[in-house]
């Protein structure tokens, strides 16, 4: 795994403090650099555009929701792959998100291997096609 200041970054955006903190620890346990944000705005402000990354994002959040964030990133020309996580199992929303280019859609609670595999795949894809 490449850590340091230039390797790929995992961004976690979830308004739930406990989910955010547990995902931070999960990525830390496999030595993947991670940055956590409580909402879409702070993520957009803290995004390191010069560095490959992958976004793990909750769908339903106060203020800017996951799908809206996806749309804004697309409008900004950001190609950071997005893995949505949801506690709702909302199928139409998942289909919509996937159609708009989300990498994957995981229902909470998920298996850590599933999440880590998806993130690794997304990062390798993102590293292959840096913006």
């Amino acid at each position: 795994m490449s850590g340091g200041e230039t390797g790929p970054l995992v961004y976690v955006v979830d308004d739930d403090d406990a989910v955010r903190d547990s995902l931070r620890l999960l990525f830390k346990s496999v030595d993947m650099p991670v940055r956590i944000f409580a909402d879409a705005e702070s993520f957009l402000a803290g995004l390191d555009r010069g560095r490959p990354g992958c976004l793990v994002c909750d769908v339903r959040m106060p203020g800017t929701g996951g799908l809206e964030l996806q749309a804004r990133m697309e409008a900004d020309g950001l190609t950071t792959p997005i893995i949505f996580i949801t506690g709702h199992g909302d199928v139409p929303m998942a289909v919509d998100a996937m159609r708009k280019g989300a990498v994957d859609f995981l229902q909470k609670p998920f298996d850590d291997d599933d999440l880590l595999d998806r993130v690794r795949q997304a990062l390798s894809g993102d590293t292959d096609h840096p913006d």
Binding site: D16, A18, V19, D21, S22, L23, L25, L26, K28, S29, V30, D31, R60, I85, T86, G87, H88, G89, D90, Q107, K108, P109, F110, D111, D112
Partner: peptide, 30 residues
Amino acid sequence: TTAIAHEINQPLTAISSYAQACERMLRAGT
């Protein structure tokens, strides 16, 4: 129900991720 499921899945997700992180760190000796 959807909202409640969400509200229960949040702590379950956190529990699952915390536990899996601990297990990985213990196995890796880190």
